[in-house]
């Protein structure tokens, strides 16, 4: 995949995030956020994470947008005469300091796609890493080819169970929070 496209996508994602922050109109911010999600899911495809890309496109750009729009429909969409939010320089200063701190760590990180990156070493000192184990043993252990699915439901099924618990609790929370309105 060409480098130019990747840079263009990164710029697109940053620009959509900035416009979500600066647009006063909430509906506009929601639409821009959906575009941001779409840009992200294309980045996942480029980074060879098709499972994440599918989930992101369906959930981030789809379900999430619907949830936000429903909220707008149930509450209010204030109308403003100004299109762009005025910038709060105190907040920019705080965030800028954090950004500088984060950027100072960049030289210590591995280059994008570097084969020396610690996360993609099959063996360290002759020992099989978790990555090495997953890519070598998945078909033998589980009989499926897709290592992401194998890790999700087989090797780390308990984590996925925890995820289901979180989703259930959130659902109960939503019903409790909104249910009281119906009673009154």
């Amino acid at each position: 995949m060409s480098f130019t496209l990747e840079i263009a996508l990164a710029v697109f994602v940053v620009l959509t995030a900035v416009s979500a922050a600066l647009l006063r109109d909430v509906l506009g911010a929601i639409v821009v956020f959906a575009a941001f999600s779409l840009g992200m899911s294309i980045i996942w495809v480029i980074l060879q994470a098709p499972d994440v890309a599918l989930t992101e496109a369906a959930v981030g750009a789809g379900v999430m947008g619907v949830l936000f729009l429903l909220t707008i429909a149930k509450t209010a969409r204030p109308s403003y005469d100004k299109v762009v939010e005025s910038v709060n320089f105190k907040a920019v200063a705080v965030v800028g300091v954090l950004l500088l701190l984060l950027l100072s760590t960049v030289p210590a990180l591995p280059e994008v796609g570097s084969p020396d990156s610690p996360a993609v070493q099959e063996r360290v000192d002759g020992e099989l890493t978790p990555y090495g184990y997953y890519v070598q043993m998945t078909p033998e252990d589980t009989g499926v080819q897709n290592a992401v699915a194998a890790v999700l439901v087989f090797y780390r099924g308990f984590d996925t169970f925890g995820e289901a618990v979180v989703v259930f609790s959130a659902l109960v929370g939503v019903l409790v929070v909104l249910g009281r309105e119906v009673e009154r």
């Binding site: 994470a49 994440v52 591995p110 994008v112 993609v120």
Partner: peptide, 15 residues
């Protein structure tokens, strides 16, 4: 996801 990526790698479909 960037940490998981490696130049020339394909998605984790083991063959």
């Amino acid at each position: 996801v960037t940490a998981a990526y490696r130049e020339g790698a394909g998605p984790a479909l083991i063959t």
